[in-house]
Amino acid sequence: MAAIEVSPEMLTLLGAGKVGRIAPPPRAIGLVFGFGTANAPATVRYLSRPCGKALDADLQTRLILLVSREACERIAGQSLDLADGSLFHVPAALRTIALAIRDCALPDAASTPYRLAKSIELLCDFLRAHGDNALVPVSPEGMLSSTDTQRLLAARRVIDERWSEKLTLDMIARASGLNRGKLTRGFREMFDCTVADAISGHRLSEAGQMLLATDLPVSSIGYRCGYLNNASFTRAFARHFGEAPTQFRARRLAA
């Protein structure tokens, strides 16, 4: 496997086969990203003590981040309370970053710093997803079939990619190959929320980013995020973030 020393606290490994002889950072944790296949979703496994045997459990092409626990907790602003061996589905945004690292076709002089920077981005986004309770565990065998799991992940991608559209249950069900019943039950089981909650949460997260990254009026941002009037947007935003959009923007930009 190819090794990239990101910093004294972080090492990235990429490729197939055994890890081999490496010098991991002190008190390292491991994040093992599998890219998935046509019949299996992309996953990430958390290892609290990444020994060679655990890292070599799967010899397919994979991306491994070895990071000191202190660095992770410093970035996350909290302790890592994940169980050793926990396996999660890779959210679409994280999979995009992981694929960019894997498929980088730049010359060697450029690919190494590119992959280094993307590795840091992948770690930060994983820790943010953990802090937001957005990591979805892979269901134990028998709870959800592999096919239904993939279709529910496809339904979640529809929301992630088409959140600005007027989405309906029937539209999402058709796009993912599920009926309405399986879609609604599966969302509660797999994502611990309703389809409507997932849509609203994504729209409000996008609204929060727009408030900080643009100078658009609050009413315009609400409309772009699917709210027909400013009052309904403000109520929904305040329930989600605990403060009104204007306060959210002012407090964070002043920090």
Rank of each mutant, 00 (worst) to 15 (best):
S200C: 13
C51P: 00
G20F: 00
I75G: 01
A105L: 09
T168K: 13
I22F: 09
A109Q: 11
L183Q: 02
N39I: 05
F126K: 05
A40P: 02
S220T: 15
V67H: 12
A244R: 06
L87H: 03
R162V: 07
L183V: 00
S7K: 13
E161P: 07
A16E: 14
A254G: 13
R203H: 14
V90D: 01
F248Q: 08
S232C: 10
Q78D: 10
V136E: 08
E121T: 14
P41C: 06
Q60K: 13
R251D: 12
S48M: 09
P25G: 09
V138N: 06
L228W: 06
R252P: 10
G142S: 11
N229I: 12
T234K: 08
H202K: 15
F191M: 09
I22L: 11
A98W: 05
F35N: 04
E70Y: 05
P113S: 13
A76I: 03
M143C: 05
F233Y: 05
A198T: 00
I199A: 00
G30I: 06
K53V: 08
L66Q: 09
D132A: 15
S219T: 15
G85A: 07
V195E: 01
M1F: 08
L167A: 10
A2H: 12
P245T: 00
A92P: 00
D125V: 04
M143L: 13
C72G: 11
C193T: 02
L211N: 07
L183F: 02
I120Y: 05
R251W: 04
F35T: 03
L153F: 06
C124Y: 08
H130V: 02
L228A: 14
L99C: 03
R157C: 07
I97K: 07
T37P: 01
F248G: 00
C193H: 02
G15C: 02
F35C: 01
I221N: 04
L144Q: 06
A98H: 06
A255Y: 09
A254N: 04
L65T: 02
A154M: 12
D197N: 14
L127S: 01
G208F: 10
F88Y: 14
A213F: 12
I221W: 03
